[in-house]
């Protein structure tokens, strides 16, 4: 086929156009804008980045993103792993899996409302209408304002909502990989007298490492961009702001496009590291 190149242009052209216009060009432009003032008129060097490091609002956002990064990633991946292994042992696995996977289908905004309601707070003595405080009171504790107490309680409360949404994703992927591990290997170990924990530790877990790496990477990419949950549940009040929410505020509330771009560049830098890993993985897969 001599006209193969022409066909390729017809087939891939529109995609290249869209990806270029909506992803590549704007990313380069944002990088450029991050060195300019609020209206992108005059060059300000590293001023915006200096602001990112020195302002207390940004420091809070960085701290919270780091907290999200560690707690959210650890909880979703670990819960996904534990549930994948446990559910494999029961007959009602499909039902349980569907239940845990369900939040993946709904919007984070909707999930935010669900969890705001779970955390609803009434002062001690009043009838609680939030599920969590009802449980706390029933166990003899004092009701708490989960979304107001800073810095740990409210941030962890938001992260819990995030974990509720994303664990199903980790579970489904890890479970699929777990079921791909040859069963006779486990059986042989069992016959040789290994207990369930040893089988998990020395057979299942090593076999799952590549999958766990993929899932962890995906979670890290997600968590850096986390926006909806915070926007709907607290809108960053009481020290719960994260980078993406900060950027939104710099854009629409403070109209400072230089700073907003600089925040975006930080998000991009983190993604860049992850991206390098991703591309290397893709190359290795292609090479096989």
């Amino acid at each position: 086929m001599r006209s193969e190149k022409a066909w390729a242009a017809v087939f891939a052209g529109p995609a290249v156009f869209f990806v270029g216009l909506y992803l590549v060009l704007p990313t380069v432009q944002t990088l450029y804008l991050s060195f300019f003032d609020r209206n992108s008129r005059s060059f300000v060097g590293l001023d915006n980045y200096r602001y990112l490091i020195t302002s207390s609002a940004m420091q809070t956002a960085f701290r919270n993103n780091l907290l999200w990064l560690v707690v959210f990633t650890a909880c979703t991946v670990l819960l996904g792993l534990v549930l994948a292994v446990l559910l494999d042992k029961v007959r009602y696995e499909p039902v349980a899996k569907s239940i845990i996977f369900l939040p993946m289908a709904i919007s984070f905004a909707g999930a935010g409302v669900i969890w705001r309601f779970v955390y609803a707070y009434r002062p001690a003595g009043a009838t609680q209408i939030g599920l969590l405080n009802e449980i706390v009171v029933a166990l003899g504790g004092e009701p708490r304002a989960w979304l107001i107490e800073q810095p740990w309680v409210n941030n962890l409360a938001l992260i819990a909502a995030g974990v509720w949404i994303w664990t199903g994703f980790c579970l489904v992927i890890i479970s699929a990989a777990y079921k791909g591990i040859p069963r006779d290997m486990m059986e042989a170990a069992r016959v040789d007298g290994a207990n369930e924990f040893q089988i998990f530790r020395y057979i299942s877990l090593p076999a799952l490492y590549p999958t766990l790496a993929v899932v962890t990477t995906t979670m890290i990419i997600n968590v850096m961009k986390i926006f909806d949950i915070v926007y709907v549940m607290t809108n960053g009040a009481f020290g719960t702001e994260v980078l993406a929410n900060r950027m939104y505020k710099e854009m629409f509330q403070f109209r400072h496009f230089g700073r907003a771009s600089a925040v975006a560049v930080v998000l991009l830098a983190v993604a860049g590291v992850v991206m390098a890993v991703q591309i290397r993985r893709f190359r290795e897969e292609e090479g096989r």
């Binding site: 992803l23 975006a264 991703q278």
Partner: peptide, 26 residues
């Protein structure tokens, strides 16, 4: 289809999978 730059373009696409949308908004 075989065409020049195919692999580079595909790598770009894979890389773009993780670009945060935030960097494109402004």
């Amino acid at each position: 289809l075989r065409f020049p730059g195919r692999d580079a373009l595909m790598l770009t696409v894979v890389g773009l999978l993780v670009v945060p949308l935030q960097t494109t908004f402004i």
